[in-house]
Amino acid sequence: MAALVLGTGSASAFPVSPTTPTCGGAGAPRTLVAQPSAFEAVAFDRDGRMLLSNAFGNSVDAVDAPSAQPHPVATVPSPGGLAPLPDGTVLAGSGNSATAFLAPAAELRQLNPATGAQQVVARGLSMANGVARAADGTVYASSDVEPAIDRIAPDGRVERGWYRASTANGLALSPDGRTLYANVSTGDPSIVAIDTGTGESRVHFRPPPGLEWAFLDDLDIDDAGRLYTNAFLAGQTWRVDPDGSFCAVATGLVFPAGISVGTEGSPFAADSVYVTTYSGSVFEITGAVPPR
Rank of each mutant, 00 (worst) to 15 (best):
P70W: 05
G116W: 00
A214C: 06
S166R: 11
A270D: 15
N112V: 00
G170E: 08
G95K: 05
F232I: 01
F56D: 07
G57N: 01
W238I: 07
T229M: 10
D223V: 11
Q118L: 10
T286K: 14
V289P: 04
A74G: 00
N129C: 06
C23E: 13
D136T: 15
Y140S: 06
G25I: 13
A98V: 11
G27Y: 13
D47V: 06
A62E: 00
T138I: 10
N169F: 03
E159C: 03
T251E: 15
S260K: 07
V158T: 06
I259V: 05
N169H: 05
I194E: 07
S126H: 05
A141T: 09
V33L: 08
V240K: 03
A172F: 06
Y278M: 12
G161A: 14
I194H: 10
D220I: 05
L233R: 07
D243R: 09
N54S: 13
T89P: 02
A257F: 01
S126W: 04
S142N: 07
S12M: 07
S53R: 00
N112A: 05
P256K: 02
S59M: 01
P113N: 01
S201F: 15
P86D: 09
V203A: 12
P242I: 11
A41F: 10
P84S: 15
L253Q: 08
G187V: 03
L219H: 15
A3R: 12
S266Q: 08
P29K: 10
T286S: 12
E146I: 11
N96T: 02
G199M: 12
L216S: 14
T276P: 00
P86G: 08
S266L: 05
G262D: 04
D218I: 05
A28H: 10
G48S: 10
P70G: 04
G210L: 08
C23V: 15
A103E: 10
F56W: 06
D218V: 02
V254K: 02
D223R: 08
S67D: 09
G137P: 11
R46I: 04
P70C: 08
T20Y: 09
P267F: 14
V240I: 11
T89E: 12
N230A: 08
L91P: 03
D61K: 04
E200W: 13
R178D: 15
L219P: 07
A114Q: 15
A100C: 09
